[in-house]
Design a protein around this nucleic acid. Structure first.
Lengths: 205, 205
DNA sequence: ACAGGCAAACCTACTAGTAGGTAGGGTCAA
DNA sequence: TTGACCCTACCTACTAGTAGGTTTGCCTGT
């Protein structure tokens, strides 16, 4: 169904990998559903309607819903780690790094979605163990990255010398996840950035 | 099934309201399910198993799941408003008031539950409209109350004179909801209170 | 160069199980 | 005798997942 731009000009080009793989489409649409409705509240029927293949065909790519969920988080995690690394490369200073980090959360909301792990956390207890484990790993990744950024900020004297970087990292992550949650429920993200800036002001030297 | 302590000593006492009404039990157990699994992921079957009446009998008390959900939030809201009023009565100062407020969130986690509206917010989009509306109202109640406490804190000179109280209120709510979410996913609430204190330190005079 | 094999990808048609909800009847206290 | 409360038995809609067949295109042997 229209995935290939025209019916054929066969011969010349490499034919194998399509521009967007069905698997990739499934992951993308499943992510949208997960980040708007939650894991329990989205179904293979929803997903099949969005992607344009039959429900049963999803099972060809992901044997179970759990496997889809796990693949989804794993794919997201890879992208996210790359994005975090890029921030470190682009921005030398702690405060601009934190603002770029915060932009992930504000950007999600502007796209009409919850942050992935924020969406998953609330129903963590009802999730398959393999997914719970990945959500935990994801948060620990955030906390480790933030801790590093904050530590650099202290040595660079942009942040308070007496800062407990682990606790401060937990605070930054919390305020952004929480602000996302509140903004999502209120359908109003105006308060997100100010809340973040207010919280970060407690870290400054 | 044992709801009434003994078979009867009829006559003397007012017999009408049993010590724990089935309706009350349903609300209580539904709240636990909602705050641990989420709205979509708990069922009338789960609830009936916990309360000890048949699934169909739940419909005698709550015609629909939505009606149960609404009643649950409304009941919670009444209790919560009373608790907030009591803080204002007991504690004259802003910072102790905020700490008592934060204790609602840490207390929830220690009881093994998410805060009610934190649990609901993530799947807000998938909720019936009547419940979405009440979640919004609940957050606005929080924000209004916090705003008042912070404003008093400013006049009492415990908090910074230049504080934007509305933004600061959003920050306090966010950090607590977010810290709950992270603690819930990590199954570790040790970082909650430090994160809160760190955030609040940005408000102090 | 063409036949045959093969596997990826998708389909229709189905399953068992569970979701929320309904119909109607029994019990018992006021 | 009414009505609150709870029951058994049932309904329809939908869930994730399965069985088995069709299409498509690449790879290989002759």
């Amino acid at each position: 169904m229209d995935l290939k731009p025209a019916t054929e000009s066969s011969g010349a080009a490499r034919p194998e990998t399509p521009l967007v793989s069905t698997r990739g489409l499934l992951l993308k649409e499943a992510e949208v559903l997960l980040r708007t409705r939650g894991y329990a509240a989205f179904s293979y029927a929803d997903l099949s309607a969005r992607v344009g293949i039959r429900k049963a065909s999803i099972h060809h790519h992901f044997r179970t819903k759990e496997e889809l969920g796990v693949a989804l988080i794993d794919a997201y995690l890879v992208e996210f780690e790359a994005a975090l690394a890029e921030i470190l490369k682009d921005e030398p200073q702690a405060l601009p790094r934190l603002r770029r980090y915060a932009a992930f959360f504000t950007g999600s909301l502007q796209d009409g979605m919850m942050p992935l792990c924020g969406a998953l956390s609330a129903e963590a207890f009802a999730l398959p163990a393999s997914m719970q484990q990945r959500v935990r790993h994801f948060f620990e990744l955030h906390l480790d990255w933030l801790e590093g950024v904050l530590r650099d900020g202290v040595t660079e004297r942009a942040l308070r010398a007496d800062l407990d970087v682990r606790r401060a990292a937990a605070m930054v992550l919390s305020v952004l996840e929480g602000a996302s949650l509140v903004a999502w429920a209120l359908k109003d993200d105006a308060a997100m950035e100010p809340a973040f800036e207010q919280a970060v002001s407690s870290l400054k030297a």
